[in-house]
């Protein structure tokens, strides 16, 4: 049999599996990126916490502990491979008595292991998103905060209404990049049996013995997914760029020029 025939046979026999795998991969990347971004905002806030002079001792202690936790979480998660994290999560939760097979049983793709995979990729992405949001926050002119505070807005209002929206705007390209990374990196979750694209190709390859053809097919699907995502991101970028709200400049510097 030649490669072309193999591919044709695989596609006709396993088209459903490849489709389900694609859906699984997309689900993992979208949920991981979306929820990871949300949690990443809190992680970034935690990493920015610093005890202030004048805080009572318990506030100082609380801030110190939270800041420490966020810093350690970020360092550990970003410093270890997601594949290892997935394995540790699997055996760790099983040791605690969690049986992932019992969660959502009987469904092909969206079974208990998919839930485990969603948790792993979300926790992993959170650490990276924390850094993304943090650098976005650092890119916001400190004058924005001063302007808000000098009108009597509280620090929470200032963060939520003025600083964070601008930080997220700054971070849009990097957030999009994390999504693309997640499309590809979710493949490592096959080690805990998450039914994503790589997992389905692995199953198809081992039943059909058409190894090259199986992995070529998913390589093309991955490429289509990332190229398609890039296109979507570009369109979002163009749409936002066209609105003056998203053209931030710092007035003072421009006026002096």
């Amino acid at each position: 049999m030649n490669l072309g025939e193999d591919i044709a046979t695989l596609l006709t026999t396993y088209w459903k599996e490849f489709l389900l795998g694609t859906a699984g991969t997309l689900l993992l990347s979208v949920v991981g990126t979306g929820v990871g971004l949300l949690l990443g905002i809190f992680l970034a806030m935690g990493k920015r916490l610093r005890p202030k002079t004048g805080d009572p001792w318990y506030a100082k202690a609380g801030k110190g502990v939270l800041h420490g936790f966020c810093a350690v979480y970020s360092a550990v998660v970003r410093g270890t491979p997601m594949m290892v994290q997935a394995i540790l999560f699997k055996y760790g939760t099983m040791a605690l008595g969690v049986n992932w097979n019992d969660i959502l049983p009987g469904i092909d793709v969206f079974n208990g292991w998919m839930v485990a995979g969603l948790i792993v990729i979300t926790l992993n992405t959170t650490a990276y998103m924390g850094e993304v949001v943090l650098s976005g926050l650092q890119g916001v002119d400190p004058g924005q905060e001063e302007g808000a505070r000098s009108l009597g807005l509280t620090s929470a209002q200032t963060f939520r209404l003025v600083v964070l929206p601008q930080a997220l705007r700054n971070a849009i390209p990097t957030i999009g990049n994390e999504w693309i990374v997640n499309i590809k990196d979710s493949s490592v979750l096959n080690v805990i049996g998450v039914a994503e694209l790589y997992f389905e190709a692995y199953m198809a390859a081992n039943t059909s013995y058409a190894f090259m053809a199986s992995y070529l097919i998913i390589a093309v699907i991955y490429l289509l997914l990332t190229l398609g995502s890039n296109l979507v991101l570009k369109l979002i970028g163009i749409k936002l760029e066209g609105r003056s709200i998203f053209r931030f400049t710092h007035g003072a510097r421009r006026a002096q020029a």
């Binding site: 002119d141 004058g143 924005q144 808000a148 000098s150 003025v162 601008q166 931030f248 400049t249 003072a252």
Partner: peptide, 8 residues
């Protein structure tokens, strides 16, 4: 001096 209008 630098206005500090909310850019968003």
């Amino acid at each position: 001096q630098s206005f500090n209008l909310f850019a968003n």
